[in-house]
């Protein structure tokens, strides 16, 4: 079981290392979307600090969606997805492994670049710390829920746009709790409540999403 999970992880990480373009594009997308907001709204530091948490969180959800449409699509095209589903291990583990790999490849770089963007938005140091923490808890949710959408839209025309339509509403709680945590620090009301709720949502997602995604994957492969 562990060997299977490690094999999936190792493979996806190796592939990402050989195709650096993919995750770099998602990362630059995140940076650019976030950088467009000051240009559209104006450079007022107070205003930017006010909208910063929300903008960065929305940009993170969009960046994760950008890459999610390919979570299973590439493996579907060359037939390796069928081999993985036909392995003796349960498909839930496969989905879990691929979601985890997605988070490591696309989520972690967002985390690393987020402080720089936080500075761009004039967020104070403690708020940046909480932003990182909220992204650390929140981005796995994006990968897990996105796995459901990627499995449902596998092989469909315009799957990428459809995926966005299906999954964005499900991201709402993560967005609210995540951005709210940073807002809480800025407003001086503390971030603990938001972060605990975000953590609870992560646990629930971890318990539910892989099963639904595994079922969806089987449906899509039929």
């Amino acid at each position: 079981m562990t060997r299977f999970l490690l094999a999936v992880l190792r493979r996806d990480l190796t592939l990402a290392a050989r195709r650096r373009g993919d995750w770099l594009i998602a990362l630059f997308f995140f940076v650019m979307v976030a950088s467009l907001f000051p240009l559209g709204i104006g450079p007022d530091p107070k205003l930017l600090a006010r909208i910063g948490p929300g903008v960065l969180w929305v940009a993170a959800t969009l960046a994760s969606l950008l890459s999610l449409s390919r979570l299973f699509a590439d493996d579907h095209r060359d037939g390796s997805l069928e081999h993985m589903v036909l392995s003796p291990e349960p498909t839930v583990l496969l989905v879990l492994g691929k979601s985890l790999a997605h988070w490591l490849i696309y989520g972690i770089p967002l985390l690393l670049i987020a402080p720089v963007l936080g500075v761009q938005f004039h967020l104070p140091a403690d708020a940046i710390g909480v932003l990182l923490l909220s992204l650390l808890i929140g981005t796995p949710i994006l990968s897990l829920l996105g796995g459901v959408g990627a499995a449902l839209t596998l092989g469909l025309r315009g799957g990428g746009v459809l995926l966005t339509l299906l999954i964005l509403p499900l991201y709402v709680p993560a967005l609210i709790f995540g951005a709210g945590a940073v807002d809480g620090v800025l407003a001086g009301t503390g971030a603990e409540a938001h972060l605990s709720l975000l953590g609870a949502f992560l646990i629930l997602t971890l318990l539910v999403a892989p099963w639904i995604a595994a079922a969806a994957l089987k449906v899509s492969l039929e």
């Binding site: 025309r157 315009g158 459809l162 709680p173 609210i176 539910v208 999403a209 639904i212 079922a215 449906v219």
Partner: peptide, 30 residues
């Protein structure tokens, strides 16, 4: 988007299911 009836049925049901689990959480979070 799904032409195949059987696949559409099941995919839609799965989406409704995860949506229904999410609806109370969305309501609460909002």
């Amino acid at each position: 988007a799904i032409d195949d009836v059987k696949r559409g049925d099941r995919a839609g049901a799965l989406l409704a299911l995860i949506g229904a689990i999410n609806v109370p959480i969305i309501y609460f979070s909002v």
